[in-house]
Design a protein around this nucleic acid. Sequence first.
DNA 1: CCGTGTTTTCAATCATTTCTGAAAATTCGG
DNA 2: CCGAATTTTCAGAAATGATTGAAAACACGG
Lengths: 190, 190
Amino acid sequence: MNLPPIVQSFVLHFGEMGSRWGIARTVGQIYAVLFVSAEPLCADDLVDRLGISRSNVSIGLKELQSWNLVRLRHVPGDRREFFSTPDDVWAILRTLVQERKKREVDPTLSVLRDLLLQSPQSDAEAHAQARMRDMLAPMELLTKWYDDVERLETERLIQLLGLGATIVKALDAKDRLFALPGRKAAAKTS
Amino acid sequence: MNLPPIVQSFVLHFGEMGSRWGIARTVGQIYAVLFVSAEPLCADDLVDRLGISRSNVSIGLKELQSWNLVRLRHVPGDRREFFSTPDDVWAILRTLVQERKKREVDPTLSVLRDLLLQSPQSDAEAHAQARMRDMLAPMELLTKWYDDVERLETERLIQLLGLGATIVKALDAKDRLFALPGRKAAAKTS
DNA sequence: CCGTGTTTTCAATCATTTCTGAAAATTCGG
DNA sequence: CCGAATTTTCAGAAATGATTGAAAACACGG
């Protein structure tokens, strides 16, 4: 590995993290190198810095492209392809979440919905379906929330996150104030 | 595999998902079986239903316990250990996020902070540090948000999520109305 | 304590994934 | 079109991670 020490630590850490999240170690490393690089890099730069094979870099870059995590640049008068990451970390985060949702959450939602349409042939199956319903509800609420938040401009998103739980505290106060006699509102007064 | 068809589909899907998230396939399957089961199961039940070795089940259960994802029960007059998942899916989700944060996010934050304390020996390192600072900021905001939200009762959390981006829209309107020249003031009005 | 039923450990095996080198395909300036 | 520079593909090697069976450790009722 041919990198200055600070960068190398960063790159090794992200390789490690990547592999814990189901991303090949070298793909994580490639991304880390691109992320901290001052200018776009070509495949051979990566071979050079990471000490991995050219073909591995090629595959890794393809993988990163399929995740939309990497931008491709062409330098005039140079035939090579150069790669970089977006400058905006929020944009990167959004892409990451979006892709992950597309690949894992959405298919899970459709499996659950599909299995809930089938008629249970036993008590065990009926109970299993009840549990799946329990699981579906939070997932649907979360994806709905995400769909909502995803559209926000970054400035607004930051604002919303900065607010944290304060809004709910306000609601809480309001609930108490009006003491709704209805259902499960204000149930916990301990 | 000795499971009714609906359950089997569910279990296979979660095994698959697990392995995409860096969890062994069988660990995901064990969790799925426990999740949909009407009563707690012992290790041999799992061997039976999943058709995997006893030792694999033992390792899987230990793994799930280390993630706090599984409750251990003792049936009086029976020497075996029985396992179940919490009934409340929100509780499960919280645990999952919490553990994941502890294992991956927190260490990453400290690596970043640590690397930012070192003095750069080159322009490349200085630029890399600037990028790390770019990365640190959103991560800190997100973890702060999470710390805040984590403490909410489930009822409140659901409320907050249901609100989605509407709060920000209100802020937006208010900002426009008062056309504040300053920064992010006016956050706390109650 | 003894014996039985149960869980855990661990070295070995098996499976999967990652990585490589060499060859094929592609691209573009001339 | 040609040929050099570059990228992609792919079959096999290497590495990693998962799974197993057998044996050890444990725990409890008698």
